[in-house]
C-alpha cells in the first residue's frame, strides 16, 4: 500500500525553482533515504510532504489524503506524519515530559496520566527516561534529538520524516540517534530520511534517492546505487562523500 505518492511536484521560492519535477512513491513500512549535495532540494522535498512549504505545483498524497487539495484538514494529516528537524526544535520552556505530552493532551485529548505513561514508555525506548523532568537546555544535542523523536512518536504517526537529524550533532552523539532510528525502521515505521550518513542509508534504507539540482537523478536499492551508480552526477557525488 502506498503511504506517500508524489506526482510532478514543483516548488519555487520567488523566481528560484528548487524542485522541478519530482515523482516518488513510498510504500508502507519502507525506509527511503534521500541523499544529495546541499542545495539539491532534498530538505525542501521533505518539507513539502507535510506542507511546511507551500507547494507550487503537482500533487502529494499522504496516506490517502491529497494535501495539495485546498479542502484537506492539514492539521489532521500532520498528526499522522511525525517530523524530526536538524535543529531539534524542542520547546525550551517545557520539560522533556511536557514536550512529549503536549500534543497528545491538547490535540488527541488524552488524559494527562495516560499521556505521561506513554511519554515515559517512549523515553525508555530512546534511552532517556531519567531525563523526563529535565529541560531541553540541560540536554546534549544527541539527547535532544532523541527526545524530539519521542515527541513525534507520541502522536502515533504512520509516517516519520527526518530532516538531516544528525547533521547538527557532535560525532560521538550520532550513533545513539541512528540506533533509535534503526530500531524504529525495524519495527516497521514508514520513514523518509534526508541524510548525509551514507552508512545509515546503505544499511537501513530500502531504497535510496539521489537528488541534484531540483530533480531526482537516480533511485535504487542501496547496494545498487552505492555499488553501481548509473548517472555521472551520482558517481561524482558518491566519489566525494564515500
Amino acid at each position: 500500500m502506498s503511504m506517500i505518492t508524489v506526482k510532478n511536484l514543483r516548488k519555487s521560492f520567488g523566481n528560484l525553482e528548487v524542485l522541478k519535477d519530482i515523482n516518488a512513491e513510498v510504500k508502507e513500512k519502507e525506509v527511503i533515504c534521500v541523499i544529495g549535495p546541499s542545495g539539491s532540494g532534498k530538505s525542501t522535498f521533505l518539507r513539502c510532504l507535510n506542507r511546511l512549504e507551500e507547494i507550487t505545483g503537482g500533487q502529494v498524497v499522504i496516506n490517502g489524503h491529497d494535501i495539495t487539495d485546498k479542502k484537506v484538514d492539514l492539521n489532521k494529516v500532520r498528526q499522522e506524519v511525525g517530523m524530526v528537524f536538524q535543529q531539534f526544535n524542542l520547546f525550551p520552556h517545557m520539560t522533556v515530559l511536557e514536550n512529549i505530552t503536549l500534543g497528545p493532551v491538547k490535540i488527541h485529548s488524552t488524559e494527562k496520566t495516560a499521556a505521561e505513561k506513554l511519554a515515559l514508555e517512549l523515553l525508555d525506548k530512546v534511552g532517556l527516561r531519567e531525563k523526563a523532568n529535565s529541560y531541553p537546555g540541560e540536554l546534549s544535542g544527541g539527547q535532544k534529538q532523541r527526545v524530539a523523536i519521542a515527541r513525534a512518536l507520541a502522536m502515533n504517526p504512520k509516517i516519520m520524516l527526518f530532516d538531516e537529524p544528525t547533521s547538527a550533532l557532535d560525532p560521538e552523539m550520532v550513533g545513539d540517534v541512528l540506533e533509535v532510528m534503526k530500531q524504529l525502521a525495524k519495527e516497521g515505521m514508514t520513514m523518509v530520511v534526508v541524510t548525509h550518513e551514507m552508512g545509515f542509508a546503505r544499511e537501513v534504507g530500502d531504497r535510496v534517492i539521489f537528488m541534484d539540482g531540483g530533480y531526482i537523478v537516480e533511485e535504487n536499492e542501496p547496494n545498487a546505487l552505492f555499488g553501481n551508480p548509473q548517472h555521472e552526477r551520482t558517481k561524482a557525488f558518491l566519489s566525494k562523500v564515500l
Partner: peptide
C-alpha cells in the same frame, strides 16, 4: 522566537492559534 518552534508545533498538528498560545507566547 525562532521559526523552528512554529514549524515543530505545526508538524505535530497544532493549529496556528494553539501554536501561538502554547509555544510562542509563553516564550
Amino acid at each position: 522566537i525562532d521559526k523552528g518552534q512554529t514549524e515543530a508545533a505545526r508538524s505535530i498538528g497544532f493549529t496556528g492559534a494553539q501554536t501561538m498560545r502554547y509555544i510562542i507566547l509563553p516564550q
